[in-house]
C-alpha cells in the first residue's frame, strides 16, 4: 500500500507539472504577488510592526500567507478529486486494489509539497524586505506548517468525498472557508469575537491551526501548543474516518 501511495504521488507530481498553467497558478502567481506586495508595502509594514509591537493585522504576515495557501490547497484538492470523479478516472481506479485513502493521500502529498515549496520561495524572497527581528524558528515552523496543512486538508477530504461535480466544489469550499477564516483569529483575535463566535471557532480546526502557527512563529515552543496539536489531530482523524465512509466514486 505504501509502495502504491508513493508511486501514485510521484506520478501525480509529474502529471501536475506537465500542465504549465497549474504550476504558474500554484507557485508562480503567489510568489509574484508576494514579491510585488513586499516591494511596495514591505518597509511600511515593517515600520508599523515595530511601532505597534505587532503586525498590521493580528497575526504576522507569514502565518496569514500560510493559512491562505493551505486553504487554496484544499480548494484545489477538492476540485481535482471532483474532476477525477466526473471524468470517470475514480471509477476506473475503484476497480483496482487502490483504496480511496491512498488516492486522496497521494493528492494531499502533492498539494503539501507544492504549498511548502511556494512558501519556501516566498520566505526566501521576503528576506530582503523584512529585516530580521527576533530569530524565527524556521525548522519548527516548517514542521508546524506541514502538520497543520495536512490536518486542515482533511476538510478537503470530506468535501471532496461528497461533492457531486467540480462546479459544486468551488462554491461549497468558499461557503465553508470564509466564515471559518472570520472566526479563526487570522484577522481578528478570537478573544475579541462575540461569545457565540468563539464557540463556533472552537469546533472548527482553523482556529487551532492559526494559534499553532502563530505561536511557533513567535517562538513559543511546542509545549505551549500541545492543545492545538491534539485538537488538529482529532479533526484530522475524524474527517478522514468520515470521508472514507462517505467517499463517492462516481
Amino acid at each position: 500500500m505504501m509502495k502504491a501511495l508513493l508511486k501514485l504521488t510521484w506520478l501525480e507530481i509529474k502529471i501536475f507539472v506537465r500542465e504549465p498553467m497549474g504550476v504558474i497558478g500554484t507557485i508562480g502567481i503567489p510568489a509574484a504577488v508576494f514579491l510585488i506586495a513586499s516591494r511596495l508595502l514591505g518597509p511600511r509594514i515593517a515600520r508599523a510592526a515595530i511601532q505597534t509591537g505587532g503586525g498590521a493585522v493580528s497575526t504576522v504576515l507569514p502565518v496569514l500567507a500560510s493559512i491562505l495557501m493551505a486553504l487554496s490547497a484544499i480548494t484545489s484538492l477538492v476540485t481535482i478529486i471532483s474532476i477525477y470523479r466526473e471524468g470517470g478516472i475514480l471509477k476506473r481506479l475503484r476497480a483496482t486494489p487502490l483504496s480511496p485513502t491512498v488516492i486522496l493521500s497521494a493528492h494531499v502529498l502533492v498539494k503539501l509539497l507544492f504549498t511548502v515549496l511556494t512558501l519556501a520561495i516566498m520566505v526566501l524572497l521576503g528576506r530582503r524586505y523584512f529585516p530580521p527581528g527576533a530569530p524565527v524558528p524556521l525548522f519548527s515552523y516548517t514542521v508546524a506548517l506541514i502538520f497543520t496543512t495536512w490536518a486542515i486538508l482533511s476538510i478537503g477530504f470530506l468535501i471532496a468525498s461528497i461533492v457531486p461535480t467540480a462546479r459544486f466544489a468551488q462554491p461549497l469550499a468558499a461557503i465553508i472557508f470564509y466564515p471559518m477564516i472570520v472566526v479563526s483569529g487570522l484577522f481578528f483575535p478570537v478573544s475579541a469575537l462575540p461569545e457565540w463566535m468563539q464557540a463556533v471557532a472552537r469546533v472548527l480546526p482553523l482556529g487551532y491551526a492559526v494559534s499553532l502557527l502563530d505561536g511557533i512563529w513567535r517562538g513559543q515552543g511546542w509545549v505551549a501548543h500541545l492543545g492545538d496539536v491534539a485538537a488538529l489531530t482529532l479533526f484530522f482523524l475524524a474527517f478522514t474516518a468520515i470521508s472514507t465512509r462517505v467517499f463517492r466514486w462516481e
Binding site: K7, E19, G88, I89, A95
Partner: peptide, 22 residues
C-alpha cells in the same frame, strides 16, 4: 469499464507501470 478515462497527461507507460505496481 464503459466510458472510463485516465488523467489527461498520464503517459501510456506510466499508467501500465502504476497498474502493475498494484
Amino acid at each position: 469499464l464503459q466510458q472510463a478515462q485516465l488523467q489527461k497527461r498520464i503517459k501510456v507507460r506510466e499508467a501500465v507501470d502504476l497498474w502493475a505496481s498494484l
